[in-house]
């Protein structure tokens, strides 16, 4: 009777443990793989711009197209005017190039690029302070964008902000998306990342330095 009781309660515990473990495994899979995969929508850029082609083969640098204005403000994503300097006519045989020149250059339409890195309207980020004064390389925050060719733009379904995998050797899956930033993934900076760096460098952390 006692044995039976014990085995009965053991069975009960085993059952409960099994339910617990199964729930744990399922939720871990959901938490690590399913939700992260669902959290992002893949979107295509209007034109599949090819950074390695520009940087590695043609040999232009970031600041050829992403430059500072005279007053130290940042031009950001180049406008059509900058592109037209080279792309007034179709160069090469790529169908994307043909689409770019015919659909945008010839029609004088700005490309509505999806931005991999952008901050909300309440944030003002000074490239001049970071690049010119603190001498931080573009890659530190943007990763090797110039050497990677992200086919897709990943838009977070809640925020509409992107995270993008730059290392083409890493398969694009849930694990890569949630990997710590700076290894294989770069994207919009969070405020704690900004302040951590500012603190470690002894720079001002006054709110208005970043918030406008």
């Amino acid at each position: 009777m006692k044995m039976r009781d014990i085995s009965e309660s053991q069975r009960q515990f085993a059952l409960l443990g099994g339910i617990f473990a199964a729930a744990l495994v399922v939720s871990l899979i959901m938490g690590w793989i399913l939700f992260p995969s669902l959290a992002y929508a893949r979107k295509a850029q209007p034109i599949n711009y090819n950074p390695p082609l520009h940087v590695e083969q043609i040999g232009i640098t970031c600041d050829t197209c992403h430059f500072f204005y005279e007053d130290g403000s940042w031009a950001g994503i180049p406008t059509l005017e900058t592109c037209v300097d080279c792309h007034s006519d179709i160069i090469g045989a790529s169908p994307e190039e043909e689409k770019f020149v015919n659909e945008y250059v010839k029609k004088n339409r700005e490309v509505k690029w999806a931005l991999y890195v952008k901050q909300p309207e309440c944030v003002s980020f000074s490239h001049s302070s970071h690049v010119r004064m603190a001498k931080i390389a573009c890659e530190t925050c943007h990763g090797p964008q110039g050497h990677s060719d992200p086919k897709d733009y990943l838009a977070n379904r809640i925020t509409n902000y992107s995270y993008v995998v730059y290392d083409p050797r890493v398969p694009l899956n849930a694990f890569t998306i949630i990997r710590d930033k700076g290894e294989t993934v770069w994207g919009t900076m969070r405020m704690d990342e900004c302040t951590a760096c500012h603190r470690s460098r002894g720079t001002s952390t006054a709110c208005f330095i970043c918030h406008k």
């Binding site: 473990a21 495994v25 939720s27 871990l28 959901m30 938490g31």
Partner: peptide, 12 residues
């Protein structure tokens, strides 16, 4: 409990 722990142990 299992589900909650699993979710909490994940980055979600």
């Amino acid at each position: 409990g299992g589900g909650a722990l699993g979710i909490m142990l994940s980055p979600t």
